[in-house]
Write a protein that binds this DNA or RNA. Sequence first.
DNA 1: AACATTTACTTAATCGTTTACGTAAATAAA
DNA 2: TTTATTTACGTAAACGATTAAGTAAATGTT
Lengths: 341, 341
Amino acid sequence: METVTIKLLAERLKLSTATISKALGDSHEISEVTKKRVFDLAKELNYVPNAYASSLRKNKSKTIAVLIPEVADSFFSIALNGIEEVAIEKGYHTLIYLTHEKLEREKAILSELLYGRVDGALMSVSSETDSFEHIEDFGKKLPVVFFDRVASAPATAKITTNDFECGYLATKHLIEAGCKRIVMLSISKSLSIISERSSGFQKAVADHQLDPATCEVVNCIGEGKTVHTTLTSILQGNNRPDGIIATVERLTTDIYLVCQQLGLQIPDDVKVVCFSNQASAVILNPSLTTITQPAFEMGRAAAKALLKRLKNPYINLEEESEIIPSVLTVRSSTAGKNSTF
Amino acid sequence: METVTIKLLAERLKLSTATISKALGDSHEISEVTKKRVFDLAKELNYVPNAYASSLRKNKSKTIAVLIPEVADSFFSIALNGIEEVAIEKGYHTLIYLTHEKLEREKAILSELLYGRVDGALMSVSSETDSFEHIEDFGKKLPVVFFDRVASAPATAKITTNDFECGYLATKHLIEAGCKRIVMLSISKSLSIISERSSGFQKAVADHQLDPATCEVVNCIGEGKTVHTTLTSILQGNNRPDGIIATVERLTTDIYLVCQQLGLQIPDDVKVVCFSNQASAVILNPSLTTITQPAFEMGRAAAKALLKRLKNPYINLEEESEIIPSVLTVRSSTAGKNSTF
DNA sequence: AACATTTACTTAATCGTTTACGTAAATAAA
DNA sequence: TTTATTTACGTAAACGATTAAGTAAATGTT
């Protein structure tokens, strides 16, 4: 199958490649008659412009990169959905990279993306990321937009949710349901969302005169077995918490399982609220109280901000920052003693 | 910031661009001394090759496309994870496209990808896809590999799971648990996985002398409200099914909710088994019997097959086909009357 | 009628990399 | 010593699209 290029169209129509290119670009320099001839033949031969030739020449790739820690998490997969929707709409292509929560991967990916492959990037930093030079370096050449997990530098658009308030609200909710010893499960010491949520947590603890010594933020790093072990040790013993706030979705299953194994009843023995976008929260046993982030909207907003900037290099990305609120949905996992959810 | 190109390196080192290019490619034509000089300067100046220039010249993009119906489904997000892992490992980049189960999108995406942007594609067809010319056209130019939802043409690698057996097994399992009127919920009339699963279903129904008139495959197309309405009408009435097999994960929540609303107890009134990769299956109320597909392995296998082909154009993709078995995990949602799960 | 402008094209350079081909010097073979 | 081969580079042409600059003909202006 012969490759259909501008050159081929030019030969067939006895025109120069310049004319074809301009005609396809609907330039005013070309007569309507010629344009029609070009369009018709292009359609007939199924002409598709070579993306790389045009990218090379125009120094624009019409491609954006999305860097996320993982995709098997409802928040990120829904956000990706929002991103892809906006990208397609505007004729952009979406490259996906998973950092698997590793700083090294993040660095490697960003440095490879520096020249030519993408016009900009959307990212949610890894839980290991505690320095930002690699992102700043990238930011000097190409626009970046953060969503959810933001970095303090470079200065750019940050699409976040009201993490502080949600941390506060989740805690307050547990306190009002009768909890005295609340633990917030973290997955990182450096992550923006975690520090926001835990600040909200600590403020709520203070505002309600709970003992800060028994209400801590506990790191629950690792995968599979590790998480299970950590949770078991937290939930064992006399002074075990009577309230748990999971800052990420993937802790949910382990929390439920460990409680089951230890014979702890949710919500009677421990009340649980998770930051989660799982559709299945409502059919869990017991149904789960969640803080649901506006994942889809955040993805869309982030992509929109980046594409706006790509269209107009003069806009200031910082001003495109947005905070889209999350929603607390109360369900059985935090029901009070006499409550009937 | 000046762009670091081969030309710049050449000027600095007083060499030709050809020498630089060959040196970077570790060619035997270049002396070790020169190579070192080139490598060192490249590293110092943080040289990154322009992907588009090189793609244009070599007619290879080191990029693959992944077309999936949606990403907010555990199977696809886990499969994507497997794909990305293999891609990164081999230095490939991954473009993601969501078809949202629309044939039109699938066509549009494939036709745009025909020239230059990618070296090949991995796909799981949309539920609307009932003709394959668009995929065949693509296949004539670039290699495609199917995973999970395959098309009958073109002839190429198909990474699937044992859908027929699983359809049979799920049905048999329900029958043995005492079900007489089993309904399999489908989402498409044309999808390979659905027809495989429903053939298995029908064979099991026949083998166990159930009445095929009360054991049907019912289409459950649409989103949100539509699914809910369909399910309600199925589960209402005297002759309602006592067993349900959901062929896709996203039906799970609605099944549980509708049962709850209609006052039907799972598993006593209706037993449920879902094709699902949800981690939360085990903590649902009641815990859900699932057929879990090897999503990660399927993603990896599909990517491996494609990349193998890209490395060696002479291999026959058909021979790279693989069937990786799924696993039936029995939980409370299919427990018999006297069973204690 | 003389000159200016507009229209509708073409020519040729360019983006950054790769590579077929050329070549001069060094080394090996006869 | 002469000729063949190898080594280590350089020259220049691609890849396909875009675009600045040029041009001839048509149209407009005075």
